[in-house]
């Protein structure tokens, strides 16, 4: 079982406010360039895509490459116009997807 990703964003924001979102996920990010003790290549296993959407609309996404170190940390900002849910997804080379959600409310 994959660990729960760590996500930090404010619980509520004013309409139109730009907020900071920080995410950290636990992953080995094996580059595929290394060899084990027997000299056999260790197969590549990385998270190759990170995406974030808000109420179904894409906010941010990026492709991750083998040179990125273990436990990738991604920080970005988003403008909040309405209350809703941020959905995060990390796609592994083997096809598994780690997902997480975080709700945000509008300041009264």
């Amino acid at each position: 079982m994959a660990d729960k990703p760590r996500i930090k964003l404010p619980k509520e924001a004013a309409k139109g406010e730009v907020i900071q979102i920080k995410t950290l996920v636990s992953h080995v990010m094996e580059s595929g360039q290394r060899k084990d003790a027997q000299g056999k290549a260790i197969p590549r296993k990385i998270i190759n895509k990170f995406a974030c959407e808000f109420n179904g609309k894409p906010v941010f996404s990026c492709a991750l490459e083998p040179a990125i170190s273990a436990n990738p940390y991604v920080q970005f900002s988003a403008k909040v116009d309405e209350a809703g849910t941020f959905k995060f997804s990390w796609t592994d080379d083997d096809g598994t997807v780690i997902t997480a959600e975080e709700k945000i409310a509008l300041k009264a």
């Binding site: 660990d3 760590r6 930090k8 920080k22 950290l24 636990s26 436990n71």
Partner: peptide, 12 residues
């Protein structure tokens, strides 16, 4: 505390 990757282990 969020960025520190050591906390992944603490949470595990």
């Amino acid at each position: 505390d969020l960025e520190n990757p050591g906390f992944l282990a603490v949470e595990r």
